[in-house]
């Protein structure tokens, strides 16, 4: 099964839609609660990253018998130093985004903590590709 969504940069009103849909489907498939929670956290953070930093992006979630593979790809400014971006507390978010309670530098660490595999590729000035895999228990 494959689910796909579009994300518009700057559109915080719809942040959380893909995570919400994926959560519903995984619950219907009786995936265990803890795994669903992890996936929802990681996907929400990835979505918010696109909304907060990029111009536009897509989410595609491929659900197999034993795992979910999520690709989040954006057209955006890219990440110059991924290792630095992975550090808890490091953020390049705007003041407006921070005032909303986002941009505390916890997004990528949350994604790392809640996925079995996380792969980030980025080209500065072009965009970022994130691949996240979670295995079902």
């Amino acid at each position: 099964m494959k689910l796909t969504f579009n994300i518009q940069g700057g559109d915080f009103t719809h942040a959380g839609k893909p995570s919400s849909e994926v959560k519903k489907v995984l619950k219907q498939l009786n995936v265990d609660g803890k795994t669903v929670k992890n996936i929802v956290i990681a996907l929400y953070e990835a979505e918010v990253n696109v909304v907060a930093h990029a111009w536009k992006g897509t989410v595609s979630a491929e659900i197999d018998e034993n795992k979910i593979t999520i690709f989040v790809e954006d057209d955006g400014p890219g990440i110059p130093d991924i290792e630095l971006a992975m550090q808890a507390g490091y953020s390049t978010a705007s003041k407006q985004v921070r005032d909303m309670g986002f941009g505390a530098g916890m997004g990528l660490p949350n994604m790392k903590k809640n996925t079995d595999e996380l792969l980030i590729e980025s080209i500065v000035g072009k965009g970022t590709k994130v691949k996240m895999v979670n295995y079902f228990k």
Binding site: I41, Y44, E45, M100, G101, F102, A104, M106, G107, N114
Partner: peptide, 20 residues
């Protein structure tokens, strides 16, 4: 008041106190 903190650490059924 940090949304990623709540996302990462709050648990099901909790009541969330915030200024957001």
């Amino acid at each position: 008041d940090l949304l990623s903190d709540v996302m990462g650490n709050a648990r099901e059924g909790e009541v969330w106190i915030t200024l957001q």
